[in-house]
């Protein structure tokens, strides 16, 4: 992945593009990670591609969680109470 020929570089960008999520998730073997890191170091568009994808994943991981509405929580527990009660009979 270290070639500087533009055509080869483009090919390497495509290979990397397909594997970026696995790279982010650390699901690739060490030699493949090393190749990717070498390519990214030398290829600005791929750096941007990786960073924007990483940020997208981070945003999903940190989405705020809403509280369960009290009215629903009570309704749910009441439905379960009926089941527990029925089973106990």
């Amino acid at each position: 992945m270290k070639q500087t020929d533009p055509h080869r570089c483009h090919e390497n960008c495509l290979v990397l593009f397909e594997r970026l999520s696995e790279y982010i998730d650390r699901e690739l073997d060490a030699p493949t990670c090393k190749d990717i890191e070498a390519h990214i170091k030398a290829c600005k568009p791929c750096q941007v591609c990786l960073e924007t994808l990483k940020q997208t994943v981070a945003l999903c991981r940190n989405l705020e969680r809403r509280q369960v509405p009290d009215t629903f929580s009570l309704k749910l527990k009441s439905a379960i109470f009926d089941l527990v009660d029925k089973k106990a009979d």
Partner: peptide, 25 residues
């Protein structure tokens, strides 16, 4: 092909994850 990192991707999460961005996601 972009060679510049956009602002939304270059800032720390706590600075970008406001209500608006969460809504977009």
């Amino acid at each position: 092909v972009s060679v510049e990192l956009p602002r939304w991707a270059s800032q720390p999460l706590d600075q970008v994850l406001d209500g608006e961005l969460a809504g977009v996601i």
